[in-house]
């Protein structure tokens, strides 16, 4: 079940650069369903499922395992932790959140309440309170360089929606895992890449694409939303279907791949949205520019409040996306 796969993957700790716990969960899920699994030098989990066709193309499908977090930069005398950003985490979104370190140690992210100019607070005003009373006590629990992430917090929201940290991009990891489980005798070779370090510059997918040399690239990622009171763009709504990316800051989707995604959606009977995003990027940008170029597209899951501790998606969009992916690996 997509929902169970999703929940399993959401709870794993995996800030950019330390994604191995997520990879381990994926390995467990895929054992016995695929032709090969290996981990590369950057921690990408690369999974093959061979296609049936004599002239099968190699399709690299990428979903990133890493999520954003806070890295400890200094332990203060009174036991508080000063932190820096791992990926695009903002003080305003992280304030007051419960965080968790790799070993399960909890902490609370606090935005300094007693400052003159509240409108201009940045990460230097943020600290993490782990309950330690002195530097010595804190040093026994954490070291400079340790990373904390939003504590797992999976919530059903209404009939079809779920909220959780790390939905970006574990929802795509869940889709890719299910694609690899359920693709059966498909035409093309699927090389699934559970990629690393997307949030710090599409770094894992770039090296994976270099090694794989795919004929076609496809990234699965979340996109922003335009359906809350004061937000109009991108013109993408939750529950109205997955979105086919036209462009973002990292990539203009290769027209031929984009069209194949629309074809796959039609064949699967799934309604899709068209996404033009003025910011952001996905693994697609790195895959497309690998070596002498790879025709590449991105399939997006509409997601509200991206990079907050409550990233909200609609399971109907997820189910639609899985159907499209299963068609795509046959059609392309």
């Amino acid at each position: 079940m997509l929902r169970d796969t999703l929940q399993t993957l959401l709870n794993a700790y995996g800030p950019s650069g330390s994604e191995h716990a997520v990879a381990e969960k994926v390995r467990e899920l895929l054992e016995g369903h695929v032709d090969s699994m290996k981990t590369d030098a950057l921690g990408n989990l690369i999974v093959e499922k061979f296609g049936a066709d004599e002239n099968a193309k190699t399709i690299m499908v990428s979903a990133h395992m890493d999520h954003i977090g806070l890295v400890v930069t200094n332990i203060e005398e009174n036991g508080f932790l000063r932190v820096g950003a791992v990926g695009g985490i903002s003080p305003e979104l992280v304030r007051g959140r419960k965080m968790v370190f790799q070993d399960g140690l909890p902490g609370i992210a606090v935005l300094e309440p007693n400052v003159k100019n509240k409108a201009r607070q940045d990460l230097s005003d943020l600290f993490v309170d782990i309950g330690a009373e002195t530097r010595e006590e804190a040093e026994k629990l954490v070291s400079v360089g340790d990373v904390c992430v939003y504590a797992p917090d999976f919530t059903y929201l209404g009939k079809n929606r779920v909220a959780s940290p790390a939905m970006d991009d574990r929802c795509a990891c869940a889709l890719l895992a299910e694609l690899l489980m359920y693709a059966d005798n498909q035409k093309n070779h699927i090389v699934g890449v559970f990629s690393t370090q997307e949030e710090v510059g599409l770094r894992g997918a770039g090296v994976a694409a270099y090694a794989i040399e795919p004929d076609i690239g496809l990234a699965i990622d979340v996109t922003a939303w335009g359906d809350t009171p004061e937000t109009k763009l991108p013109a993408v709504k939750l529950g109205k279907g997955p979105a086919v990316k036209i462009m973002d800051r990292s990539m203009i989707a290769t027209p031929a791949v984009r069209e194949k995604l629309f074809e796959a959606a039609q064949a699967a009977g799934v309604i899709v949205q068209r996404e033009v995003l003025a910011f952001g990027g996905t693994d697609g940008g790195a895959i497309q520019l690998s070596r002498a170029g790879v025709p590449t597209g991105t399939l997006s899951i509409p997601c509200r409040y991206v990079h907050s501790a409550n990233e909200v998606i609609d399971m109907r969009d997820m189910e639609g996306a899985l159907k499209i992916l299963l068609q795509f690996v046959d059609l392309a």
């Binding site: 335009g226 109009k232 763009l233 991108p234 013109a235 036209i246 462009m247 203009i252 033009v276 003025a278």
Partner: peptide, 17 residues
Amino acid sequence: LMVVDIEKDGCLRLGNV
């Protein structure tokens, strides 16, 4: 430019390429 949204009055909103 690129069409990023279509308004109910038929106007095309624009993004940059």
